[in-house]
Design a protein around this nucleic acid. Structure first.
Lengths: 237, 237, 237, 237
DNA sequence: GATGAATGAGACTTCATTCAT
DNA sequence: TATGAATGAAGTCTCATTCAT
């Protein structure tokens, strides 16, 4: 005569103290805890999303407690902010540097851009995923996090836009689309492919995929034959 | 041991009826309310995400109440399911039909695919966005919704895979990547571009963008010159 | 990246009109609907409890709609009240009459009481169950329903109390307990046994059980030998 | 697409701390809160029923909040489960032990059973009530709680059944009814009397009542004279 | 320096009841 | 006469956050 929620978890039992191995210095302890929490949060955010991840889960995954998150970061959002700092340093700065120091045509610079992003994606895939996924999750929320993400993404988009503009000046790039839109689309393709690649995980040959993606961006799917025909065939939509 | 309403009532005064203009028959009312709720939910889900959208917001946006959502759909998740039914009917079926009835080379079929998807995206963009965004939000959740989304996406990916396989048999498609991976990547590019386009809204020339995207897929960004060189330049990552 | 409620029911589809067979008179229709609703409510209240039963369930079980309940009874509680009227008429009145018209010793009257209650329980078990179970469910709720139930039960308890008092005057009943308490205990035993019997349903020989219960009340479990010993053995608790 | 707290916060001002007097260590605090919550829930469940009791009421009655219940028990149902654990330990185990260590006839064992149950009922009446009332409230619900209750009750019924079977072998017990049914009826009588007694509270002499109940079970209401006659008088029902 | 007990806003959902048709 | 669309109060549960120890 009553409706019950399923009985699964047995809560409330105090977790056994985890024997914390390791260095004794305060500073060292701080660094270690911070790192572990950041790593745990990164993993959870990209697999479950930000709002579906609880502070408790983060603490547990880092072999710490919920309180530790607040002790070190003050708020869940600040933890994400700290990760976005890392993401910017790791996924934006090096690519900007790589493109800037690559003298040559727009094509050369675009190749350098993709080369750099691919390398980063291969080594620090999680941080790249974070920026991409959080951009989706926070899109349209008026919030410091969204602004942070926009700023981060804009730096790459601006970089691409510069390349596109150079390409136009050099006359080696078509102008179907404005420079900003072309840049956005390159970002979108880049990110779409990266997410697909990352999610498929190890069942897919990394370097091969990256090479294929790069080729697609530069030359399309790879049909032999030129596009003019297809444009004609399509007519108006 | 039970709470009674009419005799012990602590209810509030009967609220002022919201003068709802509109049709008189039940069937008509039903259709209208259902449509309004679906439309409101669709808009909110793609701008805020599923879990960030509350049932109350949906009701309010449809000029109804929370209760109306439950009267018609029984659960928030069922409302999403109903929208995914629409999404499948609108964004998957016609493309499959279009590709099937297009006799020709793999290239022709791919053009038909993109043509169809673009047309749908232009007219029913919101439903396309829904499927794409929900796929991200529900990725990795073991849940009927995820399975529904997977099924929906798989139908398109399978279609692309068939095209890719045909292209290989015809010898007009490179084979850097397996057919499945190539299909996935085509999906990713398609979706990445679409999201970017949709979000930029009307400040971007639709047909122009679609044409550009199609070109990118078929021929890359559009640098004049072939890709072989770029491959050589890139070396190994 | 979102948590979902299980997806089971498919709500919101208008139920197909049930082809209502039967008499056409208004009065006849009224009577029939009322009866069906009462019968359905009775069944549900005793199997699920009052508050766990929804008005919609009642309507559906009677092949009517939720609205019909309100049309005929005005409120869920009034439906229960109507059932309690039936219960009183069926389970209280006849027993009172039977005892009153039985001239004889207190023992004779108690036998008449149990005889009557057993017969009613055998034929109108559901209504007896209702009174017993609702007494439990509403116990301690300050509510017209509780007062109604108390009144109903009090009539039987008072009747038993009269019998007990007569038995004392006749000197054929022990006086370990006050008359009121003895009466209450007889009610409790009667009801406890009845619930047990009713719930076991048809896997138990009805008349046999009733006879056994009657015997227990009058003579205990039926050990051969007298109680004096057991009293001595028990000592103080 | 996510709601953030610290940055976009719409939270209210930090509430004034309720100055909670009491022990300082966590373990002590834990024990205290758990106990208070369990005690509050027990009281409310047996006076109002399980589903009529809200989690907020429980928290308030324990000088805590709703949240505390979920912190310690995770779900309302788990709180009841915890109470049923206590009920089993307190009301079942000792009686089983008492009967097992009582060597003698079936009658001796039944006396031991009732002796033990009475003592427990006098000291831990609330827990006995809980098991009895919840059995009614959850009867027919397919639910872990019902299974728990069934298991609990079955242990006592099985014990009684063993006693009854021994009595039959010893030839000192009538066999109107099968052993299982007799055991069930003993349980019903026991419980019916107990509920009645408990509800009348302290306006009733405890030991006197228990003695009377024991007598009833062993020898019936206590009319002088034997039952054979009454059986004949009753005829068939 | 770190913990975990405790809070409370807010989410999803249920359901008795109202009312226009 | 009877329906069913719609409401909103109230309940269960989640979770970011606070704070005493």
């Amino acid at each position: 005569m009553a409706t019950l929620a399923p009985l699964t978890s047995t809560r409330s039992e105090p977790r056994p103290k985890s024997t914390r191995r390791g260095p004794k210095t305060n500073k060292e302890q701080r660094r270690l805890s911070t790192e572990r929490l950041l790593a745990a949060a990164l993993k959870l955010f990209i697999t479950q999303g930000y709002s579906a991840t609880t502070v408790e889960q983060i603490g547990r995954a880092a072999d710490r407690t919920k309180g530790a998150v607040y002790f070190y970061f003050g708020a869940k959002a600040q933890l994400l902010m700290a990760l976005l700092d890392q993401a910017e340093a790791v996924t934006v700065e090096p690519t900007i540097a790589a493109v800037r120091q690559r003298n040559g045509t727009a094509r050369d610079k675009l190749v350098a851009f993709m080369h750099s992003q691919s390398a980063i994606g291969a080594e620090r895939g999680a941080l790249m995923m974070l920026a991409i996924l959080m951009s989706t999750e926070f899109h349209g929320i008026d919030d410091p996090i969204e602004r942070r993400l926009d700023g981060l993404m804009d730096r790459l988009t601006n970089l691409l836009q510069e390349i596109v503009e150079q390409g136009r000046r050099e006359g080696i790039l078509r102008t179907d689309l404005g420079p900003r839109e072309t840049a956005s689309m390159l970002m979108a393709v880049n990110q779409g492919c990266f997410v697909e690649w990352y999610r498929r995980g190890k069942d897919l040959d990394g370097p091969g995929f990256v090479r294929a993606m790069r080729t697609i961006v530069l030359d399309g799917v790879g049909f032999s034959g030129h596009s003019t025909r297809s444009d004609l065939e399509l007519g108006e939509i």
